[in-house]
Computed example of a mutant assay.
Amino acid sequence: MEDEARMTPEESLSLIRQQEAATIHRLVPNPLFTYTPWGVSWLVGYGLFFLSYGLDGTPILPIPWGWALAVLLALQLLAFGVMFYGMTRSSLRVKGRSARKSAMFGMAWGISYPTAMAAASRFGPLLPPAEIGLFYTCLTLVLVAVLYMAGSAVWGDQRMFFLGAWTAVVVSAGAIAGPGIAWLLFSLLLGGAFITIGVLGRHRP
């Protein structure tokens, strides 16, 4: 009876994999919540910027710049809320050193963004009007790139490093290309990359 009750090696391996998947599902934030919302906000928001500005300052659609900015900010707030929900669901189950790492990483975002905006508010108005929006955008996206690469070093997450490095490359190209092309690059290449990584890396049953 004992021999019949024992699990075969295949059954044991299957059970181990099921338990591992269940642990990851409970303790690791779902990439669908942490990456995809930002990708959608950038795809739509910067896409509206591009349509409002065009390639050379000639609008493709009559979309007021203020409306496009309002949509981008609203989508980013929504993305932050979804990400916070996804991370909170997992972090509440994690204690000790990992919880402290997550808390410090979250504080790094909260400290760096106001600092960057304070510097931008001082130097941004010195730029030509057409360049101010690109300056603010590049500054915030550089923070995203640096913090994502730093986060990958903390948790060993290769996806975070890829997204951080990819963001840095795209921002560099956009800064060189200037307004218009930059909005198109940020919309398609950054928004598309974050959506793709989030969808492909989502937790599966």
Rank of each mutant, 00 (worst) to 15 (best):
G57A: 03
S91W: 13
S41D: 01
Q76V: 14
S98V: 13
P62Q: 02
V144L: 12
W109E: 07
N30K: 07
F123K: 09
M83T: 15
W183H: 13
D3E: 09
G86L: 12
S152H: 04
I195S: 04
L48N: 09
D3F: 02
L185K: 06
R89C: 08
C138S: 14
L32G: 10
L127T: 09
L190P: 04
V146M: 05
G45H: 03
G201I: 12
L126Y: 11
A119K: 07
F135E: 06
V142M: 00
G178D: 04
A165M: 07
A177H: 05
V71K: 02
L72W: 00
V28F: 11
A118G: 06
I176S: 06
V144W: 14
M87V: 15
L75E: 00
A193N: 06
A68W: 01
V40Q: 00
I63C: 04
E131P: 00
R202I: 03
M83E: 13
L77Q: 10
Y85H: 14
L73S: 08
Y113D: 00
Y113H: 05
F194V: 07
I195T: 04
W155R: 04
G106E: 08
T167I: 06
A120H: 11
P179V: 02
L143N: 07
P129N: 07
M149L: 08
G174H: 01
L77Y: 13
L189Y: 00
L48K: 09
Y136F: 13
L200A: 09
M117W: 05
L147C: 11
